[in-house]
Write a protein that binds this DNA or RNA. Structure first.
Lengths: 218, 218
DNA sequence: ACAAAAGTGTTACTCATACACCCATGC
DNA sequence: GCATGGGTGTATGAGTAACACTTTTGT
C-alpha cells in the first residue's frame, strides 16, 4: 500500500444463510458473547483477508464457522453496511451476503443454531437489519429466478417445492396454478423416478435443469 | 482499532451518476491519468474516511469531484467490488453507488465530462463493469419505482417523462399506454401550470407526488 | 375399503398491447 | 391556415386467479 494512514477500517463479511427444514424457513445463527453483546446470537462472518475477495471470505467463514460445504450453496452479495458505530469494538465495514443450502447438506456444529425466521431473537450488532434485508431479497428473488434450487434437495416432489415457495412468500398458493406456472417456466424437469412418502401414492421427482441463476422471462 | 495488522484494505466509493440531457442518457466521468491508466476516464469516487459512512463518502466525492449539489440527487447503493487487483496501485475495496440528477442542477467543472451512455469509452480500473451493473439496475428499477423523479426536473411535460423512460429502457413506448399507466400508478400530479415549448400547443406540467422512493404495487 | 397425498382443466377477470385521429397554439 | 407537439379511447390477446374432484398407493 502506498499510504499507511489511509488504512483505518476493518473489512468483514456477514452471511445470512437460509435453509428449509420441517416446513420451516430457518437462518443460521452463531453465539455472540463479548463485552458489548452478552449471550446473544448473530450472523456467521468475519474478516476479509488481504488475499481474498469478499466472496472468498464469505465462503471461508461459512465453512469454518457453520461447517457448510461451499460447493452446495447458492451465494449472492446482499448489501454493504458501513455505519460508523455498527460494531462497538471499532470501525468495521461489512459486505453482507445471502446464501441458501438444502437442509440435508448441513453439518451441525457446536455454537451454531438454525433458527426459524419467525422466531429470530434480537441479534448482536446490526444483524437484525441485515437479516431483514436478506428476507426481502429472498422473497422477491424467488418470484422471478430459479434460486430455489439452492434450498431444495437435488430431486424433490412438487408439493415440497410449493411448500418452500409458500413458506418464503408467507402465503398459500393454489396447487394447480403453481404447477402450471412452474412447468411453463421450464425451470425444472422430471427425474423419471418416483418417491413414496409413507404409505400413499408416490410422487414424481423433479430436478432443476440449471444450477446457476436463471431469470424468468419478461 | 484493536488489531493493527487487520488493517490492510483501502475503502473507497465510486458513483455512477446519471443525467438526462438533450434526449440522451449521460454518465458523469472524470479524467484518470496515472502510471497504470494513461489519459483515460473513470467514475468519480474516492476514499471513505474514518468518520463517514459509505453514503457520506459518495456525497462528499460527488460534491468535490463533480460539483454536484447533494440535496438534489437520488442515491442508492449498487454493489461492492473487492477483486484483489481491481486497482493496480494497491488493494482497494469499493462500494459503488448509483445516483441521478436533473441536468439543470449540474455544475460544470474542469476534468468532468458528461458522456452519453452509448458512447462511453473503455474506462479505468473495473469501472466498465460498475457502469454496466448500474445501467441494468437503472433499467429495472425505473419500471417499478418512481426514481425517475431524480432525473427529471421538478415539473415536466409528460412527453419529456416518456422520453426519459424510452431512453433508459432503450425502446419506444406507446404514448397512450404510457400515460394511462403513469396516471394509474398515482406517482405524479398536475402542477396546474402549462408550458409552451416554442410555438405550439402548451403542455400541462406535472410533478412527482413523492420525492422519496415509492415502489409500485404488485 | 379407507386414508392420505398426487394429480389434473376450465372459466372469469385483470392487465398489457396495439392502434389513429382531433386539439390548441404561435407564427 | 398550417405546422407542430399535446392530448385522448377502444378492442384484442395474454396472463393471473379462483375453484373441486379423481387417482394411486399401502395398510
Amino acid at each position: 500500500m502506498k499510504n499507511k494512514n489511509l488504512q483505518f477500517a476493518v473489512l468483514a463479511t456477514d452471511v445470512v444463510l437460509f435453509t428449509y427444514q420441517n416446513g420451516k424457513l430457518k437462518v443460521c445463527l452463531i453465539n455472540v458473547d463479548n463485552d458489548y453483546f452478552k449471550n446473544m446470537k448473530g450472523l456467521p462472518g468475519g474478516l476479509i483477508l488481504p488475499n481474498e475477495t469478499a466472496e472468498d471470505s464469505v465462503k471461508r467463514h461459512m465453512k469454518d464457522k457453520a461447517g457448510i460445504a461451499i460447493k452446495e450453496t447458492y451465494i449472492e452479495q446482499l448489501y454493504s453496511f458501513s455505519k460508523i458505530k455498527r460494531d462497538p469494538r471499532g470501525r468495521v465495514v461489512s459486505v453482507a451476503y445471502l446464501a441458501l443450502i438444502p437442509s440435508e447438506k448441513i453439518n451441525y456444529k457446536d455454537g451454531v443454531e438454525w433458527v426459524e425466521v419467525k422466531k429470530i431473537p434480537k441479534l448482536a450488532y446490526d444483524h437484525d437489519e441485515i437479516v431483514k434485508i436478506a428476507i426481502e431479497r429472498l422473497k422477491s428473488k424467488i418470484r422471478y429466478t430459479n434460486i430455489a434450487y439452492g434450498i431444495l434437495p437435488r430431486s424433490f416432489r412438487l408439493t415440497e417445492m410449493q411448500n418452500v415457495y409458500e413458506t418464503i412468500l408467507g402465503k398459500k398458493l393454489d396447487k394447480r396454478n403453481f404447477r402450471k406456472k412452474i412447468f411453463e417456466s421450464g425451470l425444472i424437469e422430471e427425474t423419471g423416478k418416483k418417491e413414496s412418502e409413507g404409505a400413499y401414492r408416490p410422487a414424481m421427482l423433479y430436478r432443476f435443469k440449471n444450477r446457476e441463476v436463471v431469470f424468468m422471462d419478461r
